[in-house]
Amino acid sequence: ILGKQAIDDDANQTGQMFAALMGWGQGTFASEVELQDGKVQVTREIDGGAETVSLKLPAVVTTDLRLNEPRYAKLPNIMKAKKKQLDTLSPADLGVDTTPRLKTVKVSEPPKRQGGVKVADVAELVDKLKNEAKVI
């Protein structure tokens, strides 16, 4: 299950690309999801109403905001959460090796580009492309 929005747009690309790379079916913009005997039924809103698709598992499902009702924290629970102890773990505590595996050999700026040239007309442009740049 993936969301449909990225931090920079609302393109719904990640789920669809992931499904294509894995060769799995996909149900996008899910407003209702139901699991049944190795399949998933995904209901989504379309222009004319609602559409339901049935997908064989494994499958990729991207969600819509209507999929779940958000839960709002109550003040007593917020106060209890402030008193909870937060455990701080290092990557080593979790058995994760964070040793760098890449080495930067060299960093340099690209060479400066030469300034462009203005031409008076198309004939002069074609002449410069043919004789100086030798691209045509």
Rank of each mutant, 00 (worst) to 15 (best):
E51R: 01
T52M: 04
A50Q: 10
V61Y: 02
A19Q: 00
R44C: 08
D8P: 00
V96F: 02
Y72D: 11
E69V: 14
P70L: 12
I46M: 07
P58L: 02
R113H: 05
A92W: 07
G115C: 02
V105K: 14
L67V: 09
V61D: 03
I78F: 04
S90I: 06
K103H: 12
K84A: 15
V96Y: 09
V61W: 03
T98V: 12
K118A: 09
P58D: 04
D37P: 00
V53D: 03
L35E: 13
P111Q: 12
P110I: 03
I136Q: 06
E34R: 14
L55K: 06
K83C: 07
R113V: 07
V42Y: 01
L125M: 11
A92G: 05
R113C: 01
I1R: 06
L2F: 11
K39F: 02
Q114V: 12
L129A: 06
V61Q: 05
D37W: 00
M22W: 04
T14K: 03
L67T: 08
T52G: 03
F18E: 04
G38M: 02
S31H: 02
V60L: 10
I7Y: 11
G116T: 09
T104Y: 01
E132A: 05
G3T: 14
L57E: 05
P58Y: 04
